[in-house]
Every structure is written in C-alpha cells, then in structure tokens.
C-alpha cells in the first residue's frame, strides 16, 4: 500500500486525486513587493520573453509554463521568488499588518517568511526561527536577496523558544512579551509534495508520522503560548496524514487556551476530518482546510487558523 492509498477513503474524487499526484507541478513564482510592483515584474518578464500567467486567485502569484524561475533579470533583482502555488496560502491566511510582531517558528528556507515580510511592508518585527543551521543559511540568503530588513533570525528548537533575547519582561519600549501572530509551517512527512519529489514516499513510515506528530504538537503549543490573547496562529503542513493535521489541532485545543476560526480561503479545498482510524477529534477541526492536488492543480496542503485566549 502506498501512503496515498491510505487516504482514498477521505478523498472526494479518487481518480482525479491519483491522476493529479502523478503529474509534475508547474513552475510558480511570487512577486516580491518589497522590491517592485506586480506590474513592473510582469513587464520585465514580458521584455525578456518569459511566458507567465497570474493564478486566478492571486495577481502576484504567477505560473511560468516554460521557464525555470531562476535564470532571468527579475530573479537577479530579487523581484520574484520561486514558491509553489499552494505554499502561498498560509502567510495570506495569517494576514499580518505592517508594524506587527510575528514569529515564524519553522522558517527555513524562508519562502513564507519572506512573504510575511512583504505583507508587513518590511516593517514591525519578524522572527524567523529554525532549528537547522544549514537550512537557516538558505533562509538568510533568500531574505537578503529579497531585501527583507525587518527579520531577526534565530536558531532554536521552537518547542522551547524563549522570548528573553527579545527583551521579554524588561521595560524597554521595544520589548516583546508576546507575538501578535505566529506561523507554524511544521516539519512533516511531506506526502503532499509527491508531485515535486517523486521519492517523497521512500522514507515514509507510520512510526515517522507518529514521531513527527509529537514534534508538531510541541511546536504548535509553544506558538500558542508565545502569542498574545486575541492574536492568531496559523498551522500548516504539506501532508495528508490526519495524525499530523487534525490530531495535532485536537491535542492543542485541549492543552492550550485557543480556538479554531474559519479560513476565508481563496483556494478550493475541503473541511478538516473529524474522525480517523477510530479516533474522534474536536468537531471544530472541520474549520481547517484540506487541499488535495486535484482541487487547484497544486501540491497537497493543510492549513488551519487558531485564535488565542478567546
């Protein structure tokens, strides 16, 4: 049994699901509005003869049917960034404002971090954290190329991330006692990336799913704790396994002071599942969004939004 067969009972259209998982993904770039405008980036792509079309749900997310996103002037200027279409969703769902204080708990290599910075107009404070130092250097490189100046990069285990270095508890005006928003784009079994990485299933095992779910719970709990009452936390993965998605939400709803809120999603998807492998979850996990590859011709994805202390 391949991991995908595990989820056929959950999927609305199994044939379309299988067919989409077998197709490669189109190249997609996000326009980096820290350094340019969507119009100017598209002009520059036009004048280099690089075919592109905006996705039907976001004018700054462009499909490049023929080209790879890397070898062109708009890329050299940091105007565009190769980023899978569906991976543009969580930062938009988090929807930070300029001036906010935002924690990206699992940030490397920084596609969503740099998108958050752009949504914040490169103002406020964005803390990009990852426990993998090698991957952090890719994050730093991307943030620099895209012109991000509001980021502080940290190298900690997000499960016990400390706000002390940010001035917590001091009377400095800039001290951070809690974040306004947090993004947990969690490490996962990556089943939904099968279109991009055909070997994504080679290392798959139920034991791995269970152990990574433990890490996810720890990180999401810490994110809720580090966010102020009324603030929001977005949880996302690129996997289908309910153990890593709804079960993680169910655990954190129980353990921390937070609740799930509706997502106003511009992409098609289906509600989170409330039952799996004989387990029942808190009914509000249905507010989460499951995106299968055939819904929008993207990778697979999971996204949920939590409000803290309400």
């Amino acid at each position: 049994m391949t991991p995908l067969e595990r989820y056929e009972s959950l999927v609305d259209d199994v044939a379309a699901f299988r067919a989409a998982c077998d197709r490669p993904l189109p190249a997609v770039v996000r326009v980096n509005t820290i350094k340019t405008t969507v119009d100017r980036a598209r002009d520059a792509l036009d004048s280099e003869g690089i075919a592109h079309e905006p996705t039907d749900w976001h004018p700054g997310v462009l499909r490049l049917p023929e080209d790879s996103p890397g070898r062109n002037w708009p890329h050299a200027h940091g105007w565009i960034h190769g980023q899978e279409e569906v991976s543009n969703l969580p930062a938009l769902v988090l929807d930070p404002d300029p001036g906010d204080r935002v924690w990206d708990a699992c940030a490397a290599p920084g596609s969503k971090t740099t998108q958050l910075a752009a949504l914040m107009d490169d103002r406020g404070l964005l803390v990009g954290n990852d426990n993998n130092l090698g991957r952090l250097s890719a994050l730093r490189h991307n943030a620099e190329r895209l012109g991000v100046t509001n980021i502080a990069v940290t190298n900690r285990d997000a499960r016990n991330f400390s706000l002390k270095p940010l001035g917590e508890g001091s009377d400095r005006p800039t001290a951070v006692d809690a974040f306004d928003h947090a993004l947990v784009d969690a490490p996962c079994s990556c089943e939904g990336t099968i279109r991009k990485n055909p070997d994504a299933f080679d290392t798959w095992s139920l034991d791995h799913v269970r152990s990574v779910a433990g890490v996810q719970k720890g990180i999401l709990r810490r994110a809720v704790q580090a966010t102020r009452p009324g603030g929001t936390v977005v949880y996302s993965t690129c996997t289908f396994a309910p153990e890593e998605n709804e079960a993680v939400l169910d655990h954190v709803l129980d353990a921390e002071d937070c609740r799930l809120v509706d997502i106003d999603a511009p992409l098609e998807g289906v509600p989170g599942v409330t039952e799996w492998a004989g387990e029942r979850f808190d009914p509000s996990v249905a507010k989460a969004l499951r995106i299968y590859p055939h819904h929008n011709d993207t990778g697979g994805f999971f996204c949920a939004k939590l409000e803290v202390g309400a």
């Binding site: 490169d122 404070l125 952090l136 991000v148 980021i151 502080a152 270095p165 940010l166 001091s170 800039t174």
Partner: peptide, 18 residues
C-alpha cells in the same frame, strides 16, 4: 541594517540585512 530594535547585544543569527 534592521527595521526593528532589540536589546543589545542580541543573541541571533541575523538582524535585518548586511
């Protein structure tokens, strides 16, 4: 160069951009 401010010295891998 950093668009925000933090207590100095700060124990980080990076603040803003070079």
């Amino acid at each position: 160069i950093f668009a925000a401010d933090l207590p100095s010295p700060v124990d980080c891998e990076g603040v803003g951009m070079t």
